[in-house]
Design a protein around this nucleic acid. Structure first.
Lengths: 166, 166
DNA sequence: TATTGTTATACTCTATAACTATA
DNA sequence: TATAGTTATAGAGTATAACAATA
């Protein structure tokens, strides 16, 4: 497996697909039958499209997921939010700095335990998240079109099973 | 979305899952219904397990996919192999250096066009690939156990569709 | 002594520009 | 001039160790 590529801006970069150019009929062979290869390619495509949809709000998938978690779980500390998302605490610091400097969330020193910060969405953060959800919904709707609602649900269920139980 | 973590060695690192520790019942909310989140988590799990299975051969998913492509498409040049896998040519150089220094493949200057290299597996590379395929088969077999063969096939088909058509 | 947030740091991936040698 | 391979480099993302403040 391999598969790479990013799309921060809207511009198309090169593409590893057999559509574009002169791959001149290279055979993928057993690669296409293994789960990992299409899984990675699909993940890149999805994130790419998510970024495009989210461009007006300038939110990455990771940032969006943090805002969602803060909305659903206000007042949690950094360790809790970071570990839930599989982000290491040291790496979460700069990420929060970014969100906080854009005034989308804020750190509030806990009264009980003055080591930890309660994390909360600001009003601006709540507003941005509301808009972001609508943009994300369009993204998901396009997937429903491509796969059909039942298949999309089944796909999410299988991926969740793999993520949780494999 | 977010989701991270790597597993180069066999050791367990921390985990973002709701199993391990004191996430103290944090709600994922709509995150679990979006495709991107479980997609990324599943991809990480799969690659992690692939690495574990491949540990005796010390092959990454990307390296394995290159060897597979060389076997199926001997004599292609770097540009062709790299672009098929979505690897940028500059980044493919070091990767090939690694495989070549382990004598798994070799670059052969083309007689027609002395700018390009025909890439071919060495005998050692063919042998390593044969072993690697067996280890990869175990990995895929475990997935078949988890999902059932029909579901696994459907999963691969849907991911391929997303990767190709979304 | 343990934990929270943090800094520093390093390593891998991915991306772009520009060089060289050929064509 | 264009292309193949390459170098240099920069930016994300991810990983670990260690420190200060607090418990």
């Amino acid at each position: 497996m391999s598969v790479s590529r990013t799309a921060t801006d809207g511009a198309k970069t090169q593409r590893g697909s057999r559509k574009e150019a002169e791959d001149a009929g290279i055979e993928l062979g057993e690669l296409s039958e293994m789960l990992g290869y299409p899984l990675k390619r699909a993940q890149l495509k999805i994130f790419e499209d998510f970024l495009r949809c989210m461009a007006p709000l300038q939110l990455t998938p990771a940032q969006f997921s943090v805002l969602l978690l803060l909305e659903r779980n206000p007042g949690r500390n950094q360790t809790e939010i970071a570990s839930t998302l599989g982000i290491l605490r040291p790496n979460f610091v700069a990420m929060l700095d970014g969100l906080e400097s854009r005034e989308l969330c804020s750190r509030v020193r806990s009264a009980n335990d003055r080591r930890s910060h309660h994390l909360v969405l600001t009003d601006k953060g709540r507003a941005a998240l509301a808009r972001a959800k609508k943009l994300a919904a369009k993204h998901e709707a396009r997937l429903n079109e491509l796969l059909g609602p039942a298949n999309r649900t089944a796909l999410v269920a299988m991926l969740t099973k793999v993520a949780d139980e494999f």
